[in-house]
Amino acid sequence: MPRSATANQELRERSRERILGAALEVFAAKGYEAASISEITAAAGVSRGLVSYYFATKEQLAAELLDRWLDGITAILTLEGTPDERLAGIIDGALMAAATTLPIQRLAITLMMQPTTHDVFAQVEADKSIRLAQVEDAIRAVFADRGAAEPAVEEMLLRATLEGVTVKLAIYQQTFPLEAVRRRLYAGYALPEPAFPLPITSPPVHRLRAK
Protein backbone atom coordinates (compact mmCIF):
# COMPACT_ATOMS: atom_id res chain seq x y z
CA MET A 1 0.00 0.00 0.00
CA PRO A 2 1.51 3.37 -0.98
CA ARG A 3 2.50 5.71 1.83
CA SER A 4 0.35 8.78 2.34
CA ALA A 5 1.69 12.26 1.64
CA THR A 6 1.87 12.85 5.41
CA ALA A 7 3.90 9.68 5.94
CA ASN A 8 6.27 10.64 3.13
CA GLN A 9 6.73 14.10 4.64
CA GLU A 10 7.48 12.60 8.05
CA LEU A 11 10.02 10.24 6.49
CA ARG A 12 11.74 13.13 4.72
CA GLU A 13 11.87 15.13 7.94
CA ARG A 14 13.38 12.19 9.86
CA SER A 15 16.02 11.72 7.15
CA ARG A 16 16.87 15.40 7.19
CA GLU A 17 17.15 15.46 10.98
CA ARG A 18 19.34 12.34 10.93
CA ILE A 19 21.68 14.03 8.46
CA LEU A 20 21.87 17.21 10.54
CA GLY A 21 22.51 15.21 13.72
CA ALA A 22 25.28 13.27 12.00
CA ALA A 23 26.81 16.47 10.63
CA LEU A 24 26.94 17.99 14.09
CA GLU A 25 28.60 14.84 15.48
CA VAL A 26 31.22 14.77 12.74
CA PHE A 27 31.88 18.51 12.98
CA ALA A 28 32.32 18.14 16.75
CA ALA A 29 34.68 15.18 16.40
CA LYS A 30 36.74 16.27 13.40
CA GLY A 31 36.34 20.02 13.21
CA TYR A 32 34.48 21.78 10.42
CA GLU A 33 37.41 22.05 8.02
CA ALA A 34 38.51 18.41 8.36
CA ALA A 35 35.00 16.92 8.20
CA SER A 36 33.86 15.50 4.87
CA ILE A 37 30.46 14.86 3.34
CA SER A 38 31.43 11.18 3.03
CA GLU A 39 31.96 10.95 6.79
CA ILE A 40 28.65 12.67 7.45
CA THR A 41 26.92 10.30 5.03
CA ALA A 42 28.41 7.28 6.82
CA ALA A 43 27.48 8.62 10.26
CA ALA A 44 23.91 9.27 9.15
CA GLY A 45 23.59 5.83 7.54
CA VAL A 46 22.11 7.25 4.35
CA SER A 47 23.17 7.50 0.74
CA ARG A 48 25.37 10.28 -0.59
CA GLY A 49 22.57 11.18 -2.98
CA LEU A 50 20.13 11.73 -0.11
CA VAL A 51 22.54 14.05 1.67
CA SER A 52 23.10 15.98 -1.56
CA TYR A 53 19.32 16.20 -2.09
CA TYR A 54 18.91 18.14 1.15
CA PHE A 55 22.29 19.85 1.40
CA ALA A 56 24.33 20.46 -1.74
CA THR A 57 27.44 21.51 0.19
CA LYS A 58 29.06 21.21 3.61
CA GLU A 59 28.54 24.95 3.99
CA GLN A 60 24.77 24.47 3.67
CA LEU A 61 24.84 21.88 6.46
CA ALA A 62 26.77 24.23 8.71
CA ALA A 63 24.47 27.12 7.82
CA GLU A 64 21.38 25.11 8.78
CA LEU A 65 22.92 24.16 12.13
CA LEU A 66 23.90 27.77 12.77
CA ASP A 67 20.43 28.91 11.78
CA ARG A 68 18.95 26.72 14.49
CA TRP A 69 21.54 27.94 16.99
CA LEU A 70 20.54 31.54 16.32
CA ASP A 71 16.87 30.62 16.62
CA GLY A 72 17.63 29.26 20.08
CA ILE A 73 18.99 32.63 21.14
CA THR A 74 15.65 34.26 20.36
CA ALA A 75 14.05 32.33 23.22
CA ILE A 76 14.77 35.32 25.44
CA LEU A 77 11.98 37.19 23.64
CA THR A 78 9.48 35.14 25.67
CA LEU A 79 10.91 36.11 29.07
CA GLU A 80 8.53 37.90 31.39
CA GLY A 81 8.72 39.51 34.83
CA THR A 82 10.56 42.42 36.38
CA PRO A 83 13.71 43.79 34.72
CA ASP A 84 15.82 41.91 37.29
CA GLU A 85 13.94 38.66 36.64
CA ARG A 86 14.36 39.05 32.89
CA LEU A 87 18.08 39.77 33.22
CA ALA A 88 18.52 36.73 35.44
CA GLY A 89 16.62 34.68 32.86
CA ILE A 90 18.91 35.89 30.07
CA ILE A 91 22.02 34.96 32.07
CA ASP A 92 20.68 31.55 33.10
CA GLY A 93 19.40 30.77 29.62
CA ALA A 94 22.75 31.57 28.03
CA LEU A 95 24.70 29.54 30.60
CA MET A 96 22.38 26.55 30.30
CA ALA A 97 22.62 26.67 26.50
CA ALA A 98 26.41 26.81 26.73
CA ALA A 99 26.53 23.83 29.08
CA THR A 100 23.97 21.60 27.37
CA THR A 101 24.60 22.26 23.67
CA LEU A 102 28.39 22.38 23.50
CA PRO A 103 28.75 20.76 20.04
CA ILE A 104 26.71 23.45 18.32
CA GLN A 105 28.34 26.13 20.47
CA ARG A 106 31.78 24.91 19.37
CA LEU A 107 30.69 24.90 15.74
CA ALA A 108 29.39 28.45 16.01
CA ILE A 109 32.60 29.64 17.66
CA THR A 110 34.70 27.93 15.00
CA LEU A 111 32.75 29.38 12.09
CA MET A 112 32.76 32.85 13.62
CA MET A 113 36.48 32.96 14.23
CA GLN A 114 38.13 31.11 11.35
CA PRO A 115 38.79 33.40 8.34
CA THR A 116 37.92 30.61 5.90
CA THR A 117 34.45 30.08 7.37
CA HIS A 118 33.56 33.49 8.78
CA ASP A 119 31.53 34.26 5.65
CA VAL A 120 29.26 31.27 6.37
CA PHE A 121 28.48 32.67 9.80
CA ALA A 122 28.10 36.21 8.48
CA GLN A 123 25.57 35.08 5.86
CA VAL A 124 23.43 33.21 8.38
CA GLU A 125 23.60 36.19 10.73
CA ALA A 126 22.54 38.49 7.89
CA ASP A 127 19.61 36.22 7.05
CA LYS A 128 18.50 36.41 10.69
CA SER A 129 19.18 40.15 11.05
CA ILE A 130 15.59 41.14 11.88
CA ARG A 131 15.20 38.43 14.52
CA LEU A 132 18.60 39.19 16.04
CA ALA A 133 17.78 42.89 16.20
CA GLN A 134 14.67 41.96 18.19
CA VAL A 135 16.86 40.03 20.63
CA GLU A 136 19.29 42.94 20.95
CA ASP A 137 16.41 45.36 21.52
CA ALA A 138 14.88 43.06 24.15
CA ILE A 139 18.15 43.00 26.11
CA ARG A 140 18.54 46.76 25.73
CA ALA A 141 15.00 47.23 27.02
CA VAL A 142 15.91 45.26 30.15
CA PHE A 143 18.85 47.56 30.82
CA ALA A 144 16.79 50.65 30.02
CA ASP A 145 14.14 49.51 32.52
CA ARG A 146 16.93 49.07 35.08
CA GLY A 147 17.98 52.67 34.54
CA ALA A 148 21.19 52.10 32.53
CA ALA A 149 22.62 55.24 30.95
CA GLU A 150 23.72 53.34 27.82
CA PRO A 151 21.51 50.28 27.30
CA ALA A 152 23.13 49.46 23.94
CA VAL A 153 26.61 49.33 25.47
CA GLU A 154 25.30 47.22 28.36
CA GLU A 155 23.72 44.79 25.89
CA MET A 156 26.96 44.44 23.94
CA LEU A 157 29.00 43.96 27.12
CA LEU A 158 26.64 41.30 28.49
CA ARG A 159 26.66 39.38 25.21
CA ALA A 160 30.45 39.60 24.98
CA THR A 161 30.75 38.33 28.55
CA LEU A 162 28.38 35.41 27.98
CA GLU A 163 30.05 34.51 24.70
CA GLY A 164 33.42 34.57 26.48
CA VAL A 165 32.05 32.21 29.11
CA THR A 166 30.87 29.92 26.31
CA VAL A 167 34.33 29.88 24.73
CA LYS A 168 36.01 29.04 28.04
CA LEU A 169 33.44 26.36 28.79
CA ALA A 170 33.97 24.82 25.35
CA ILE A 171 37.70 24.59 26.05
CA TYR A 172 37.62 23.75 29.76
CA GLN A 173 34.36 21.84 30.08
CA GLN A 174 35.53 19.67 32.98
CA THR A 175 37.13 22.40 35.07
CA PHE A 176 35.04 25.52 34.40
CA PRO A 177 33.13 26.52 37.59
CA LEU A 178 29.96 27.61 35.82
CA GLU A 179 27.83 27.98 38.95
CA ALA A 180 30.40 30.22 40.65
CA VAL A 181 30.65 32.35 37.50
CA ARG A 182 26.86 32.55 37.36
CA ARG A 183 26.67 33.84 40.92
CA ARG A 184 29.42 36.37 40.21
CA LEU A 185 27.43 37.65 37.22
CA TYR A 186 24.37 38.01 39.42
CA ALA A 187 26.37 39.96 41.98
CA GLY A 188 27.94 42.16 39.30
CA TYR A 189 24.47 43.23 38.17
CA ALA A 190 23.17 43.57 41.75
CA LEU A 191 20.66 40.77 41.21
CA PRO A 192 19.29 38.77 44.16
CA GLU A 193 21.36 35.65 44.75
CA PRO A 194 19.81 32.68 42.90
CA ALA A 195 17.73 30.42 45.11
CA PHE A 196 18.88 27.23 43.41
CA PRO A 197 21.93 26.13 41.39
CA LEU A 198 21.56 25.39 37.70
CA PRO A 199 20.69 21.71 37.06
CA ILE A 200 24.12 20.91 35.64
CA THR A 201 27.41 19.61 36.98
CA SER A 202 29.72 22.45 37.94
CA PRO A 203 33.18 21.84 39.45
CA PRO A 204 34.51 23.98 42.31
CA VAL A 205 36.72 26.98 41.66
CA HIS A 206 40.33 25.89 41.19
CA ARG A 207 42.22 26.33 37.90
CA LEU A 208 41.13 26.07 34.28
CA ARG A 209 42.87 23.08 32.76
CA ALA A 210 41.99 21.01 29.71
CA LYS A 211 41.49 17.30 30.37
Rank of each mutant, 00 (worst) to 15 (best):
S4D: 01
A7V: 00
A7H: 03
L11M: 09
S15T: 01
L20S: 00
G21E: 06
L24W: 00
L24Y: 03
F27Y: 06
K30W: 01
A35V: 14
I37S: 15
R48W: 08
K58D: 07
A63M: 13
L65C: 04
L65V: 04
L66M: 13
W69T: 07
G72K: 04
L77I: 11
L79A: 12
E80S: 14
D84C: 06
E85K: 12
G89W: 04
D92H: 04
A97L: 05
A98H: 03
L102Y: 04
I104W: 00
M112S: 09
M113P: 02
P115W: 07
P115R: 02
T116L: 05
V120D: 10
V120Q: 10
A122V: 10
V124F: 11
V124A: 11
D127T: 08
R131D: 13
Q134T: 04
D137C: 03
R140C: 13
A148C: 09
L157T: 15
L158Y: 02
R159I: 08
G164M: 07
G164C: 05
V165F: 06
L169M: 11
Q173P: 00
Q173T: 13
Q174W: 04
L178Y: 04
A187D: 14
A190R: 15
P194C: 12
F196L: 14
P197C: 13
P204G: 09
